[in-house]
Amino acid sequence: MNLTIIKYNAGNIQSVLYALERIGAAAVVSDDPQLIASSDKVIFPGVGEASSAMTYLRERNLDRLLKDLSQPVLGICLGMQLMCARSEENDTNCLGIFDEEVKKFTPGTKEWKVPQIGWNNIHHLKTGLFRNVQEGSFCYFVHGYAVSLGSHTIAETDYILPYSSALNRKNFYGVQFHPEKSAVVGEQILKNFLSI
């Protein structure tokens, strides 16, 4: 199986590569459209800011390419948010794979810290992405924006309000947490994606 991690101007790409290595999967990091299009599976990772990431993708025509992929695609954190229609982060139009809006966490009181940083539960798990993952498992999150619950939601997490910690539509999957940093639970989720 060949596996491509999309290279763009976002952080944390190496961490995804290393996590895949730990579970015995070799991947390449690339922004070569042909290579991406011909991969069996594609991972779209990222930590960073939405508008500059979208600009980078558009300049390289990766935005169109990503939308048209028919093999399994996994967006991680910013990657998942960019797969939505729009983000409040600098008012950015995104890829529109999931017809959802990414909204800023709005804490009612100062006790809620934004961004959310740390380990939180995922529950109401659906699809094979969460095979052998128990309800209420802990994953590591770092994010200041989130997607509300909707028809594409395949995992929920509560912070200020319940929100989508994972999305799925057809061949596209997205997770808001970082499986590459979520200990054995994250490794199981990556393994599941590889066997989809």
Binding site: G118, W119, N120, N121, H123, F138, F141, D158, Y159
Partner: peptide
């Protein structure tokens, strides 16, 4: 009933 972010 909700779940919460854990302390680290």
């Amino acid at each position: 009933l909700i779940f919460v972010l854990t302390k680290r």
